[in-house]
Computed example of a mutant assay.
Amino acid sequence: MDCYPGSPQIQNIIPTIYLGTTTFAAPVLGLICGTLLIVLCFIYLEFRRKQMARSGEGYGNHTLNETVIDPEASLPPWQLSIIPLIVVLVLNFYFSMIFQWDDALLEPFRAMNVPLLAKGVHNVVAIWALVLGLLAAIIIAAATGRKFMSKNTSVKAALNAGALGSLLAIMNTASEVGYGNVISSLPGFMEVADALLGIGQGMPLFNVALMVNILAGITGSASGGLSIALDIFGQHFLAETAAVGIPAEVVHRIAAMASGDMDSLPHNGAVITTLAICGLTHREAYKDMFAITLLKVVVAFFGVFFYMLTGIV
């Protein structure tokens, strides 16, 4: 069985829970854990805001990468501004879960002997869906926001600025994923992974969360750590959890949540990108970023024990 984020084998289209004789189509486990994380992060950030306000700290002097906004410019209403974000979510869901992709789409590329071609459309549906959603959102944002642009800019200039700005995130993320793949090919990596497999015997879901969490930290990437963990140990995870009656979609949710924990160590591409965009250094900002990381760790393992106690998916 192929085991990768978004695959139909490990992620059901509509996860269900059963309460008595009634079926409720809802990703309850993910909803509960996501809500808990938002609440905990808000409490922590509000605590830090009040703490900084008492010490007299203001906005700071790190506006190098910030756009200068004309105070006389006409800004779009917030209702219009969130439409592109909603479009990304809706189209990503539609193309990932509802739209039926034809595997024949890859035949022209197979005929050209394109290297590193995916084995099937199902292997790249998650990427295609996100790209189509983003493309549609960019077109809508350009069309609806054009009249709100200042006289000194244009749609072309905005697209160029966005493309150039994306290079930092792309290169940072790509380098971290490449670094993670190099690390995963080393003999020491497999020794660490094999040692982790022995932790939490009898609690396979706990072992999934622990391994994905630590491997994401080692590789410095949530997506890299998750893909490596599932590529190498996906069959083992599914076999161990299935033996005790844990559905594959639960494994998917726990692994996805755990991948976002220790991936945000100082060498993570997202951390480096965020600090560069904000004009901050690790010394100035990483303490609070690491605190949020710890909250994510707590929520991921809370999800494990919540499912073990309640059985709610």
Rank of each mutant, 00 (worst) to 15 (best):
D2W: 11
Y4P: 03
P5Q: 08
P5S: 09
G6K: 01
S7Y: 11
P8F: 10
I10R: 06
N12Q: 06
T16M: 11
T16I: 07
Y18C: 05
L19C: 11
A26K: 09
G30L: 13
L31V: 13
L36W: 12
I38G: 09
I43M: 15
M52K: 11
S55Q: 03
G56F: 04
G56A: 06
G56D: 05
G60T: 04
G60P: 03
L64V: 11
I69W: 05
P76S: 14
Q79F: 14
Q79K: 15
P84W: 02
L85I: 12
I86A: 09
V87D: 02
M97H: 12
M97D: 14
R110G: 03
A111S: 10
M112N: 03
N113P: 03
P115S: 09
L116V: 14
L117H: 03
K119H: 14
A126C: 14
I127K: 00
W128K: 00
A129Q: 00
A129C: 02
L135P: 01
A141D: 04
K147A: 08
N152M: 11
N152I: 13
G162Y: 02
A163D: 09
L164P: 00
S166K: 08
L168C: 13
A169M: 10
I170L: 15
T173V: 15
T173D: 08
T173Q: 09
G178S: 15
G180A: 04
N181W: 08
V182W: 06
L186M: 13
P187F: 04
G188A: 09
F189P: 01
F189V: 04
L196Q: 06
G202R: 04
M203H: 15
L205G: 04
V208F: 11
L210P: 07
M211A: 15
I218R: 01
G220E: 06
S221D: 05
S227E: 09
L230K: 12
Q235S: 14
F237W: 03
E240G: 03
A242D: 12
V244S: 07
A248C: 15
D263F: 07
S264H: 11
S264R: 05
T273F: 14
L275Y: 05
L275G: 05
C278E: 14
G279I: 07
G279Y: 07
T281H: 07
T281F: 07
T281I: 08
H282E: 13
A285V: 02
Y286T: 02
K287Y: 08
M289T: 15
A291M: 15
L294Y: 05
L295N: 10
L295H: 11
L295D: 09
V298C: 11
V298G: 06
V299C: 05
A300W: 02
F302Q: 10
G303D: 06
F306D: 06
Y307P: 01
M308D: 12
G311H: 07
